[in-house]
């Protein structure tokens, strides 16, 4: 195998993330949450590759989190994998319905329609108190892991490594998808939809495929976050959360699947430690960081890294950040 920075650095990051909780146990919950969110950010990145920004993807994060919580409640503790599966299936199902509608629109209309749908869902969560627990949300009891009841510490450890494996697997599969014929067709929606139609391909159906993939990723992240936090609240589906996903995608770099996780880890780290040390200026810090990214590294951190290590950042990533 070739020894170069482009393969070594990502491997080192994965390794560092994998061993960090062993050295500093307090980081474990933070990393679990960051990686769960990273999965949702990955979903947002899939759509950014088609040139579309969704400001409502927390919808799928929330749908899946609540679905997982209901399963957990309904079966007294529940089984982790069935919670995750039901969560993902629920978000996929909703994404087909919402997707059939929103893929008819582009750009600002696409973004705002997604926002609108997520706000409706958010208000339903608040309103139907008896089912959803209103703004207090629902608690998610610690589920069984493959039928085994675990202590909190052991479970958290298992959950962390599960999230890490799922994040790596999802990143790999998403990468494959984006490089496949259908993934490339989806990316042409950004550059020339007319030509795509003149190839005999329905641009709407192609975007719908991407939309469902992206919702599935958000769903997986949402269900994992629900289990990790032990509680789901309407805040999961809040529009601020959707904006956060977009923010992290731009920060990490929307041109590559790694950007989702690099951005997410960095974001959670800044948020946690800056708010601990610098009180309420953490949002200002993040704002300034984003400003610098947009001005000087529009392809995000991963794009900057690709440029520094000699690979020409793809124009896809350059533009998505602008």
């Amino acid at each position: 195998m070739q020894f170069n920075l482009r393969t070594v650095v990502p491997s080192l990051i994965v390794l560092a993330v994998a061993v960090l909780p062993l050295l500093a146990p307090t980081t474990q919950v933070l990393l679990t949450l960051a990686l769960s969110k990273g999965l949702a950010v990955l979903g947002v990145i899939v759509l950014l590759q088609a040139g579309q920004v969704s400001f409502g993807h927390a919808l799928f994060f929330g749908v899946s989190a609540y679905a997982a919580a209901f399963v957990g409640k309904g079966f007294g503790g529940g089984e982790l994998f069935s919670m995750l599966a039901i969560g993902v299936v629920a978000s996929l199902a909703i994404s087909v319905v919402v997707g059939l509608f929103v893929v008819r629109y582009r750009h600002i209309f696409f973004g705002m329609l997604n926002l609108a749908v997520s706000m409706i869902f958010f208000s339903l969560l608040e309103k139907f108190y008896h089912v959803t627990g209103g703004s207090d949300g629902l608690s998610v009891a610690r589920p069984l892991f493959l039928g085994i009841e675990m202590e909190r510490e052991g479970f958290e450890m298992v959950l962390f490594y599960l999230v890490l494996v799922l994040a790596l697997g999802a990143a790999w599969l998403t990468h494959r998808f984006l490089n496949s014929p259908i993934g490339n067709m989806m990316r042409t929606i950004k550059t020339n939809e007319v030509r795509l139609e003149y190839l005999g391909v329905s641009a709407r159906n192609t975007l719908l495929v991407g939309y469902i993939v992206s919702a599935g990723l958000c769903g997986l992240g949402g269900a994992l976050a629900a289990v990790a936090q032990g509680v789901v609240t309407p805040e999961y589906a809040w529009w601020i959360r959707s904006g956060e996903f977009v923010f992290i995608a731009i920060l990490g770099g929307s041109g590559s699947v790694g950007g989702a996780f690099v951005g997410s880890l960095l974001y959670e780290a800044v948020r946690t430690y800056a708010s601990a040390f610098a009180g309420d200026v953490w949002q200002m810090i993040l704002g300034i960081v984003l400003l610098f990214v947009i001005l000087f590294a529009p392809s995000g951190i991963t794009g900057l890294f690709a440029r520094l290590t000699g690979r020409k950042a793809s124009p896809a990533s350059e533009e998505a950040g602008q």
């Binding site: 496949s180 014929p181 259908i182 490339n184 067709m185 990316r187 042409t188 950004k190 550059t191 020339n192 007319v194 030509r195 795509l196 003149y198 190839l199 005999g200 391909v201 793809s314 124009p315 896809a316 533009e319």
Partner: peptide, 23 residues
């Protein structure tokens, strides 16, 4: 009308894939 973020060959590969519809 080309796919401006793809190479010349990729433009054709996308067309070829679209034609065969085996994705």
């Amino acid at each position: 009308q080309l796919f401006t973020e793809h190479s010349v060959l990729e433009n054709l590969l996308i067309a070829g894939a679209a034609q065969s519809r085996r994705w």
